[in-house]
Amino acid sequence: MFEWIRFIAGTGFLATGIVIFAIELYGAFHYDYVLNRMHMAAFGDTFGIGVSLVGLMLINGLDFTTLKMMLVILFLWCASPVSSHLIARLEAATNEKLEEHMEVEKE
C-alpha cells in the first residue's frame, strides 16, 4: 500500500514537472521580448527541474542517491536564477529603448 502511494505521488510530481516544462517551452516561444522569455526559461529551469527531481526522489526511496539529487536541486537553484539575473541586468543596462517594453523608474 505504502509503495503504491509513493509511486503515485512520485509519478504525479514527475507529470507536474513535465507540464511545467511544456509551459516553459510555450512561453519561451510565445513572448517577443527577451526579458519575458528569460523569465519563462528561468521558471522552467528552477521550478520544473525541482518538481521533477522531487518526483524522482520519491520513486527512488531514501538512500544516498536521493541525497545526491537533493544536492543537485540545491546547486541548480543556486546557478540558474543567478545567471538569469545577470543576463537580465545586462539587458536592462544596455537596452536604450527600455521604456518601450516596460515602465522604468526615473531617477
Binding site: C78, H85, R89, A93
Partner: peptide, 15 residues
C-alpha cells in the same frame, strides 16, 4: 556594461 559587485552573484559565490 557588466554589473559590478552584484550582491546576488556575490552571495551565491560566497556559498
Amino acid at each position: 556594461y557588466e554589473p559590478k559587485n552584484d550582491a546576488i552573484l556575490q552571495m551565491s559565490a560566497y556559498v
